[in-house]
């Protein structure tokens, strides 16, 4: 509760939080099927209908309602982004802590991560999806693998420096167990960088998912996703610009929202700032 209030008190937190909350609402409604129209229903008569009161964002080449498809698309994209970032955070944190704590694994583990990082994100994701075959779950796994090295690095660096801090030495002098030191002294101090990283990674994952779908390797038609909708709009850009504008704006605003929220969280979670806000 306190953290929600703190976000609300923070200017960019308020804007970012509102955007993310709005998207979450749209995503849930879209996934529950509570859309203005059936996203798959083809209203043949109203093909490429411009936005008006019946079709808020117009219709596409097959006469499907863009607004409804956008809502299910957001649901789809968010699902992929959330799961992939969750897996990446979990794996990255474990690997990063392991690398920092057990010096022996450090070199090998980090070189593997360097190899993964050497590939451009979208290329690596493409490679994995091409090998495993397109689909929602392969997208999730591919994006998770792509972003794991970033989390590993974000965790390992500070973990190494925290490990050498005097409060860890102090904990050793009264015989604290490794698990206690890892959770209370390392992980707790990593919450702030991790939270910021998670919000940023969510934005990137959304973008990567859109990229994969755009290239036809993510969500498969007729299901909707933001990237797929953009891809479909390419040839009709001039006749039906709404097909491109709304999904494009949706992607842009969601990324803006996550970034603003990430900034706000970084300020709020810093204990030195806590007093001035709360």
């Amino acid at each position: 509760m306190r953290i929600l209030r703190a976000i609300f008190a923070h200017t960019s937190g308020r804007i970012g939080g509102a955007i993310v909350a709005l998207y979450l609402l749209l995503a849930v409604l879209g996934m529950l099927g509570l859309t203005p129209h059936n996203p798959l229903m083809q209203y043949r008569v109203d093909r490429l209908h411009a936005p008006d009161s019946a079709y808020w964002m117009g219709t596409d080449l097959f006469g499907r309602d863009v607004a409804s498809r956008l809502m299910t698309g957001i649901g789809q994209s968010f699902t992929v982004a959330f799961f992939s970032v969750a897996f990446a955070t979990l794996a990255g944190t474990i690997l990063g802590l392991a690398a920092a704590w057990f010096g022996r694994w450090d070199g090998l583990l980090m070189r593997i991560m360097d190899v993964l990082l050497a590939f451009p994100a979208i290329l690596l994701a493409l490679l994995i999806v091409t090998v495993a075959g397109p689909g929602t779950w392969t997208s999730i796994v591919a994006i998770a693998i792509v972003y794991t090295p970033i989390f590993t690095r974000v965790v390992r660096g500070p973990a190494l420096s925290l490990k050498a801090r005097e409060f860890v030495d102090a904990a050793r002098t009264f015989g604290s167990s490794s698990s206690y030191i890892l959770t209370r002294h390392l992980l707790l101090n990593l919450v702030a960088p991790l939270t910021v990283q998670v919000t940023l990674a969510l934005a990137w994952a959304l973008l990567t998912e859109a990229g994969l779908s755009f290239l036809g390797l993510g969500t498969q038609p007729p299901a909707a996703s933001l990237g797929l909708m953009l891809s479909d709009s390419r040839n009709l850009m001039e006749t039906a610009p709404w097909l491109m504008i709304f999904p494009g704006l949706a992607i842009m605003i969601s990324i803006l929202g996550f970034n603003l929220l990430g900034d706000a969280l970084r300020d709020i979670l810093d204990p030195k700032m806590r007093r001035s806000i709360a």
Binding site: F167, A171, F174, G175, R184, L188, N189, P271
Partner: peptide, 21 residues
């Protein structure tokens, strides 16, 4: 400044040796 974990309250910091043993 370095020997107290900045993320823990004083109560948790003082309790740590007790928990550790």
């Amino acid at each position: 400044y370095a020997s107290l974990n900045p993320r823990l309250t004083i109560a948790s910091i003082l309790a740590e040796p007790v928990i550790a043993t």
